[in-house]
Design a protein around this nucleic acid. Structure first.
Lengths: 214, 214
DNA sequence: GTCTATATGTTGATAGAC
DNA sequence: GTCTATCAACATATAGAC
């Protein structure tokens, strides 16, 4: 926190996907960590910065986390688990038609990235700051999550309802839409989260060449 | 550079878009800066790290740049200028049909991000580390670059050859494909840069609903 | 579980010789 | 334009009292 207030993301109160995060100081640390890591980055946020925002002394944090890295690791874990859970739930409540399933996955992906922009940014930009053993669980979940989309696309191609120019490149492009959301989207009357989710689902289906409705 | 080798981007020799970067030590500093900032991030790369890789003493850098920030600022400037120049050139050599123009813009965007992945990463992820006055020129160029795509899309809609579900959201989605390239793409025989450019252009046109050929 | 105080290393940057 | 030597500020983390 040497350089003036160029922020990666607007500095605002950060919220979690509702996972099992205990109340109390530990949770407050995670919330403040999410806020600061998202807006200035992990390496540009010091333990003193966290403590100041929490109105605690720096040493007090170490009663709750063994190190600054572990605060980030916990955030990264929560974020990946929330996304994976959301995608699985979406798939389960979708119909059996591949277009419905893509719509469900993309809508869930969009919803999460638009609702928890700080979590999305920290999970995606600061994962590399973790030692391999702290990052590993998140990376495993990430692979499982992308597999969900790839499988639905493959099934759609087999059934002849999708005809993307290249299934992997198209899957990456669909995911990319979601990953960019925190950097430009601000919910408004003209374009709220639900409308954005619909738009992204529509764009995904256009890329897949699957305009089919059930 | 405290934490073990989790790298954001593979550590490899970094090259520039051919802009006017003078030979000599100043250029070497920029090349090494690009390499290290891309792989570990600006805040996790110390002046000592740069000096070590350059086989110089840390103090020697200050004969070429007034501060570490100015190294990043110069990289960010070069990157933005290169992209803007590439997009303008692409537009000029494209035909007058909006579909041709989108194809040209997307192909150029893809080419640059695939050819200079480190530059793309640094420009997009580390811009926020700069003080406003150092970041301003780049931000201005960025606005001009996105305007190019938005204008072509608007013209296509007026002519009735494009019918995207939402022009701004679609433009952002098209740009997002390009921004993700450095994080997954590795040129291969099965998928080289040209093929990727073609695929991205095709996906962009599908999103725009403009399959027209000239 | 929070505090005060501090250990220990690293940071960006400068002074001044050659 | 590079070196040696160094500064002041900052980093993460710990020790021990309450």
């Amino acid at each position: 926190m040497k350089t003036p207030p160029r922020l990666r993301l607007r500095l605002q109160k950060a919220t979690f996907p509702h996972t099992t995060v205990p109340e109390g100081t530990r949770r407050r640390i995670l919330e403040v960590g999410l806020q600061l890591f998202a807006s200035r980055g992990f390496h540009d946020t010091s333990v003193r910065d966290l403590a100041k925002e929490l109105e605690l002394q720096p040493s007090a944090l170490y009663a709750h986390f063994p190190s600054k890295d572990h605060v980030l690791a916990e955030l990264v874990r929560i974020g990946h688990e929330a996304l994976h859970a959301a995608l699985r739930t979406a798939l389960l409540s979708a119909g059996s038609h591949p277009a419905d399933q893509v719509r469900a996955l993309v809508r869930a992906h969009t919803h999460l990235h638009a609702t928890y922009p700080q979590m999305a940014v920290v999970v995606n930009e600061e994962l590399y700051a973790l030692a391999p053993e702290l990052a590993a669980p998140a990376l495993a979940l990430r692979d499982q999550s992308s597999a969900l989309l790839l499988e639905v696309i493959a099934r759609g191609e087999e059934q002849g309802v999708f005809a993307p120019p290249h299934s992997v490149v198209t899957a990456v492009a669909i995911a990319a839409m979601g990953l960019r959301i925190p950097y430009w989207f601000e919910p408004s009357d003209a374009l709220d989260i639900n409308a954005l989710a619909d738009l992204h689902a529509e764009l995904a289906l256009r890329m897949l060449g699957g305009r089919t409705t059930t």
